[in-house]
Amino acid sequence: MKRAILLSAFLLSQFGTSQLLKTNGQKIVNDKGENIQLRGLGLGGWMLQEGYMLKTADFADSQYKIKQKIAELIGEDGMNEFYKAYLKNGITKQDIVFLKKQDSTRSGFRCIIICILYRLKRNR
């Protein structure tokens, strides 16, 4: 239900009309039955690092183990500073605007998939 609401809000902001999407077999269609192609990009690993993504699975396979290894290298304070800078500079609003733009060199993405770690919060 939450996904449908978010997707509807996205479509409203993109196309000026509210369209509910649904599946028809393996296709995504709008309320008129027209095929919809969602061009998207997954930002997995930005807010939640996992060993298989970072190629650290042999020695640190989960977020907390990766953080432990960083703390071993640069200390707890250094690790905290690293993550502050990492989250501030990893993906910015300008990056999202860039991904949305469509021109001869970029396809323009309609959706972005992120993995959010519940323990993270961004202080503004």
Rank of each mutant, 00 (worst) to 15 (best):
A4S: 03
L6N: 01
S8W: 00
F10Y: 13
F10I: 12
F10K: 11
F10T: 09
F10D: 13
L11F: 01
G16R: 04
G16S: 05
G16L: 13
T17R: 06
S18M: 01
Q19I: 14
K22N: 14
N24Q: 15
G25E: 12
G25R: 08
G25V: 14
N30H: 09
D31R: 00
D31I: 00
N35T: 15
N35Y: 09
L38V: 15
L38W: 13
R39T: 14
G40C: 15
L41M: 14
G42Q: 15
M47D: 01
Q49I: 08
E50I: 15
T56A: 11
A57S: 12
D58E: 10
A60F: 07
A60I: 01
A60H: 04
D61P: 04
D61H: 02
Y64L: 01
K65R: 05
K67F: 04
E72A: 04
L73Y: 03
G75H: 02
G75S: 05
E76F: 02
E76A: 08
E76H: 07
D77M: 00
G78H: 06
M79H: 03
N80K: 13
E81C: 03
F82L: 12
K84Y: 02
A85H: 11
L87N: 09
L87K: 07
K88P: 04
K88E: 11
N89F: 13
G90A: 05
I91Q: 07
I91A: 14
T92W: 08
T92L: 06
Q94F: 09
I96E: 03
K100F: 11
K100R: 15
K101G: 08
Q102M: 07
Q102T: 07
S104C: 03
T105H: 05
T105L: 06
R106D: 11
G108Y: 14
F109H: 05
F109M: 09
F109A: 11
C111Y: 05
C115R: 07
L117M: 07
Y118V: 02
R119D: 08
